[in-house]
Amino acid sequence: MTDPAEESRIFEECYPALRRFAAVVGPIECDPDDLLQEAVARVLRKHRLDELDHPLAYLRRTIVNLASNERRRFAIHRRALNRMARDRRDQADEYPSDLDDLERLSAPERAVLYLSEVDGYRYAEIGRMLGCSEAAARKRAMNGRRHLYAALAEEVARG
């Protein structure tokens, strides 16, 4: 039997972490709650949250999968918006540039970086969370750092 109260309790517990995770992993244009909500909906179509062994990990993985799609989609829209807004110089400052720099990374890269740099997980743990090997998680983190450091260095150089 579904226990809505238990499901709500589990989600309440997971929500802060998941929302932060979605905010990092999802495209900048995508509302983190929208992404999280979609991930939860996808899971609820097949499972109850209270029947998952590790709902937090499961939902994280779903968020990464969805974010990978959203990234491609929103990249297109962002470009289109930029085209339409070429004459609007303030358009480029819509988001802080350092946050926008994160867009250079793939969703899995952002996920790995966030989980390692912010939440402090080890790569083996991240690999289990995201369904990849420890080596793959480490590699994604390295790629992400390389891309991001390059961008940050450019900004530092520009002053």
């Binding site: 929500y15 929302r19 905010a23 709650d33 999280l36 909500q37 939860v40 720099d101 912010v118």
Partner: peptide, 19 residues
Amino acid sequence: MVLERRAERGTPRGAAVVL
């Protein structure tokens, strides 16, 4: 720091609403 700021972006709608 960048990741932290990114994680805090937007205004949360709250767990109850999202669920």
